[in-house]
């Protein structure tokens, strides 16, 4: 199963724009490689969707194609509103989702 890492600042000021970094372990099989032994194409198996919600509301989403490298790294920005949760979901070609959550403390 894919393993995800996320990094957000421990605390941010209200209105501050901060970077969110994410990394997930995944082969991102393109569907174009051939098995060296059998000569058959290895079926495509990628994470095709990444969603980040902030206190339940979508703040950033992304559609990925096989051109995204293995072990996808995705960094983006979020503007600090209220303290709460950033929830991350990566969904693969089979509809299987990997989830991760991070707490954000907003001061001031």
């Amino acid at each position: 199963m894919a393993k995800a890492r996320v990094k957000v600042p421990k605390s941010v000021k209200k209105g501050e724009v901060f970077e969110v970094k994410t990394l997930i372990s995944h082969k991102m099989e393109t569907g174009q490689r051939k098995d060296k032994k059998t000569g058959k194409k290895i079926p495509r198996m990628i994470i095709n969707k990444f969603v980040c919600t902030y206190n339940g509301k979508e703040v950033f989403t992304s559609d990925w194609h096989p051109a995204i490298s293995a072990n996808p790294y995705m960094a983006f920005f979020v503007k600090a509103g209220e303290s709460g949760n950033l929830d991350f979901t990566w969904t693969d070609d089979k509809g299987k989702a990997t989830k991760k959550s991070a707490k954000v403390t907003v001061t001031g």
Partner: peptide, 12 residues
């Protein structure tokens, strides 16, 4: 360390 994908193996 966060950008380094090798850290996945450290975690594992």
């Amino acid at each position: 360390d966060f950008q380094n994908p090798g850290m996945i193996w450290v975690d594992d």
